[in-house]
Nucleic acid binder design. Structure first.
Lengths: 128, 128
DNA sequence: ACCCGATGCCTTGCGTGACAAGGTATCGGG
DNA sequence: CCCGATACCTTGTCACGCAAGGCATCGGGT
């Protein structure tokens, strides 16, 4: 019982902490991919799924609302395209506004990574 | 007014985005600091506040519940100490369990940072 | 003929961490 | 004498990630 609980908690914990750590990263990842060329939703799902050994994997329930938020705030623009197929795809293109936002995101991310590295490296040298 | 709104929204956005990016990082930061030596809550507030130019700043409403969660899960242990003063301090010490958890956290964080760096560097070379 | 998985889009409801805002209490300085 | 710093705590709200569901088309296997 105790072992079961611990193991179950361990797995659950690692998934949860991975989710919490990666939080806020999705926007950065999505916009970065879109900064290269336009993509449709399902495509982003696959691209991010295989990037970084699945660390950046995004679920449908996360991606689609995120894309809608980015669209609402003018960072990306969507266009339906049939391309002669029955089921059309919804392509997303990054806007100039989106690029500016992406730059800000990258700066912030860089700052966080630097701060964490400093903290992890200089451990013990910070005085109260 | 428009400027105010834009600036206000810009500030609000950057604050929100910073918060979301740093999410889940607090646990890592706190445990890292505690891995060097014991600290009391208010002390952690100050230490993290000046680390990394304030990027890792934590608010009271975040820290105290976090410390309680870490205590509940056995990653840290608390001891009240008066040290001859009227207002006692609650010192937190990391446990072996906490060290193991910290190691896992660091690994996960490293993986995320690597994945993001790969994505940001190899942009455009990922194929669907 | 039939079903199932992949493609492709979407939504609602829950869990969770960060935080604002509030509370309590002591101590020192202006 | 009051206010800021020290030192602890809690409740309610926000926003994101996701599980789980839904809808529709297409291709291949049996």
């Amino acid at each position: 019982m105790a072992e079961d609980t611990e193991e179950a908690q361990g797995s659950a914990t690692i998934a949860r902490l991975r989710r919490e750590l990666a939080r806020g990263t999705t926007e950065l990842a999505v916009l970065s991919v879109l900064s290269v060329r336009r993509r449709y939703g399902y495509e982003l799902l696959k691209v991010l799924g295989q990037a970084g050994e699945g660390v950046l994997e995004v679920k449908e329930g996360t991606l689609y609302p995120l894309l809608h938020r980015l669209e609402d705030s003018g960072h990306i623009v969507a266009t339906w395209e049939a391309e002669g197929r029955a089921r059309p795809r919804k392509y997303y293109v990054i806007t100039p506004d989106g690029r500016a936002y992406l730059a800000m995101l990258r700066t912030e991310w860089g700052g966080l990574v630097d701060a964490m590295r400093q903290l992890l490296d200089t451990l013990g040298e910070v005085q109260p």
